[in-house]
Simulated scan of single mutants.
Amino acid sequence: MIHRIIYWFRNDLRLHDNEAFLSATQIAQEVVPVYVFDPRQFEKTKFGFRRAGALRAQFLLESVLDLRNRLREKGGDLLIRVGKPEEIIAELAEQYGAQYIYTSKEIAPDETSVETSLSKNLKVVNVDIKLFWMSTLGNVLDLPFPIAKLPFDFDDFYEALKGDIRVKTASPEPEKVTLPQGYEAGLIPSLPMLAIDPMEVEHSKSDTSPPQKGGETMGLLNLSTFIENTIKSGQTLVSDTPIIDYGLSTWLSLGCLSQKYIYESLLPYAGNNQVEKVIFDLLKRDFAHWTLLRHGSRLFKPGGIKHEINKRWLNDLPLFEKWTTAKTESEAVNKVITKLISTGTLTIAERIVAADYLANELGLNWTWGAMFYESFLVDYNVAGNWFRWNNVSGVGSK
């Protein structure tokens, strides 16, 4: 049996259906759970807003705190550090004499760059890293085609998959977490420790819409409430309204909820239209993820996954600032941007209204708008956000 494994939590801030963490607790005598706050995620962009804004940061802090509390219930704890994960995880591996690093696999360029750097640093201390695929309903190998032949449009993807959806059983929570002696968990940072003024949150808060609270506990409660009030009650779900508008996407964004767990929780009610609608939405999230895996960095470029290199976009900062400060000529757009800044939440229809205006009415560089959404949307997930902006801007699938 392996003596010690460091488990690096990333966008999987949960104990339910966490195959990687469960595996670590089963194969190692001791596990060192770790979360690293990367200051680079909160730095300001060239436009003045942060990569991850104050409301997103607050939701993350709440989610990490909840994870720590749940680990403590299992006899464990969560080691907290602030810095570059690729350096800190390697240092911890040497400090604790770990044989392996276990963590979830990410596919966006920034995250994979960190993985590559960490892998190089671990070779110096002779420690291996094991990556687990946990972001979708199924594994890439479960798709009925190689990723290189991923359909360009979601409709084709759905037609190929709907009769053969392969979803493994959700993993149970570990029964117990055993820590090494002398474990020093450290403090969860405050907003100022992440160079964020707490007033940024206060200025963002809306009196009429209290912010959603982060963490697995609230995510599971929200799912239970959704099933009780929407699925069991037979409430009709609007056909073109995704799970974003029913609140589940907020906890999915940091992995406080698992897609597989949602799918499994709905199986007892299979056959009704509401359940089929949610599964459809989960597959749409998966398709964005597979599109990122298939097309890589093209998803983040002005030409998009269509590689529209001849399409020209305006790089007009004053015009962009009117959009970001809700001072455009469109009252509908201004209302959406004001809501985004004050609450961190938007319906899918609202996201499309503001995005369509920026890209297709103003002709502005749509990647700027995608960065703005990245900063302010509390339920931001990299694949879904950039995939949707590709499509609205006419450089994606549909």
Rank of each mutant, 00 (worst) to 15 (best):
F132L: 10
L143E: 06
L137D: 00
A160I: 03
A148Y: 07
E106W: 09
A160D: 04
K105E: 15
L137H: 03
D155K: 13
A160T: 02
T112G: 06
E159A: 14
A108V: 01
F157H: 02
L118H: 04
V127S: 04
K120N: 13
D156T: 11
P151N: 04
D156C: 05
T112D: 01
V125G: 06
E115D: 14
F152M: 11
L137Y: 01
A160V: 00
S117Y: 07
Q95P: 04
F152Y: 09
E106Y: 10
K123L: 11
F132W: 10
W133K: 05
Y102T: 09
V125C: 09
S117N: 14
L150T: 07
N121H: 12
Q99L: 09
T136E: 10
V114Y: 03
L118E: 07
V140Y: 08
Y102N: 06
Y100M: 14
D142M: 01
Y100W: 14
E115Q: 15
I101V: 15
V114G: 03
A160R: 15
A108F: 06
T112S: 12
I107G: 03
F145K: 06
K149E: 15
N121M: 08
A148G: 08
L137P: 00
I101E: 09
P151G: 03
V124D: 06
T116D: 14
V125K: 14
K149C: 12
F154P: 00
D142F: 01
N139V: 05
Q99W: 01
L141M: 02
Y158L: 10
A160L: 09
I147P: 04
D155F: 12
T116H: 11
M134N: 14
V140W: 07
K120T: 10
L150I: 07
G97V: 08
L161A: 04
L143Y: 08
M134Y: 05
V124C: 05
T116F: 11
S117V: 02
T112Y: 07
E111D: 11
A148D: 13
L141Q: 13
D110I: 12
Y96L: 10
T103Q: 11
N139L: 12
V114N: 05
T136G: 04
F132Q: 01
P109R: 04
V124E: 14
F157P: 02
T112I: 11
N126V: 10
P144S: 04
E159I: 15
D155N: 14
F157T: 03
E159L: 12
K105Q: 15
L131M: 13
E106G: 12
F154V: 03
P146G: 06
L137F: 00
P109G: 03
F152H: 08
K120Y: 12
